[in-house]
């Protein structure tokens, strides 16, 4: 079985032990420094995890490499806000300004296996505080499946879209694996993420 690749970014929270624990200690994840990307054979991996903390400016110089990987059947799971277009079909983040709690409420637009059984309310609030999940949105590319939006303005936070024989799952907020330590229904996200990656035919 192919393994998954996590691109490390040289920050304390991005340490292999910490992230591997958040990702469930599956034994399926290889960790490599982002700046060693040129030395990596992406097609060897079932999926590439891209953290919100990566140097997107560098990653965007490898957009062709990522695009080729996707077209050949790869999966990219990316988090954060887009500032540099390392994924060909994505454009810059639009921040929510002057928001209130209702602007931050997460609404599921389309069921998706990664969020199966995950309560929208528990995505919206952590300890009664809203805003951790999404504070703005991205324009999903044509053909994307919109999974979650926030607020009445319907800003898109989560979406998935095909690229050639591959696919992108994009979460426009803090890294999804931060739910790896959760005690509520959001704890389903990380194991279901691996099931989704490896269920691909």
């Amino acid at each position: 079985m192919k393994r998954a690749l996590f691109l490390m970014y040289g920050q304390p929270e991005g340490g292999m032990t910490n992230v591997d624990r958040q990702l469930g200690n599956t034994g399926l994840v290889d960790f490599a420094d982002l700046y060693e990307l040129d030395a990596l054979a992406l097609p060897d991996y079932a999926a590439v995890f891209v953290s919100m903390h990566v140097d997107q400016r560098y990653l965007a110089t490898h957009a062709d490499m990522i695009d080729r990987y996707l077209r050949q059947g790869g999966t990219v799971v990316a988090n954060g806000h887009i500032a540099y277009p390392f994924l060909r079909d994505l454009t810059a983040f639009t921040p929510l300004r002057d928001y209130n709690v209702d602007d931050l409420r997460v609404k599921r637009q389309t069921p998706h296996p990664v969020w199966d059984g995950v309560a929208e309310l528990e995505l919206t609030f952590r300890r009664g505080v809203a805003g951790f999940y999404g504070r703005g949105g991205h324009q999903p590319p044509a053909g994307a499946t919109v999974v979650h939006t926030i607020g009445a303005r319907g800003l898109t936070v989560d979406f998935a879209y095909p690229v050639g024989r591959g696919r992108v799952l994009f979460h426009g907020g803090n890294d999804l694996w931060q739910f790896g330590n959760a005690k509520d229904t959001t704890a389903r996200i990380v194991p279901q993420l691996f099931e989704w990656i490896y269920a691909k035919g």
Binding site: D55, R57, A83, Y84
Partner: peptide, 11 residues
Amino acid sequence: LDGGTYYHHET
């Protein structure tokens, strides 16, 4: 210094 992340870029 700009670290190349989205949040460095935005700030």
